[in-house]
Amino acid sequence: MIKFDRVHKRYPGNLEALQNITFEISSGDLVFVTGPSGAGKSTLLKLIAAIETPTHGTIIFENKNISQIKSSAIPYVRRKFGLVFQDHKLLYDRNCYENIALPLEINEVNGGDIRGRVRAALDKVGLLSKEKLMPISLSGGEQQRLAIARAIVCRPSILLIDEPTGNLDKKHADEIMNLFYNFHELGVTVIIATHEIPITSKKNKQLYLEEGNLIKITGQ
């Protein structure tokens, strides 16, 4: 499903974010991308989602080389992923409902279907009663769940999650992780970048990065 072949990513200023990365992820995998801060975890997720392009190497997604894709085709690749960002990237001038509806509008989902799908996504993360509230009035854990609802509302086959539990206490972190495990059990490929793997984790694959190098792959 996703294949990295000798991928390099260098940022301006000769900063090597990733070097010679090669791995494969199959459909339905639960993958943890781990490593210390600055190891290149977020860059790896951005490369998968076609938010960044590699300096060298090839990234194959669904049998297509997305490292050499035309810029006009990039949005359509990005739509295949559900993205949960480290800083949530919620829109604070829109209520919860409107935040969740945005990806559906981008995907040109029929206006009549949007309401049902937004409510279903909010229900899945336990925020149905708060659809009219503004994100600022939600707790940190609720904001994270809102960001997850936005990621799943288009029913993507792959979820890319960046540091989902970084700012949460253990109880809320477990709740969030359980949500991801549930999606994984439904057949969704879940890729989580985190500096530490929760003890409660299910059977998974791990990519361990350090200073931009893929040090080891476990659980293959």
Binding site: A49, S72, L83, K89, P103, I106, N107
Partner: peptide
């Protein structure tokens, strides 16, 4: 912020 997010989650320029 909305524009950046929209681009990240697959919005086209025309959108």
């Amino acid at each position: 912020e909305e524009i950046e997010l929209s681009k990240l989650i697959g919005a086209t320029n025309s959108f």
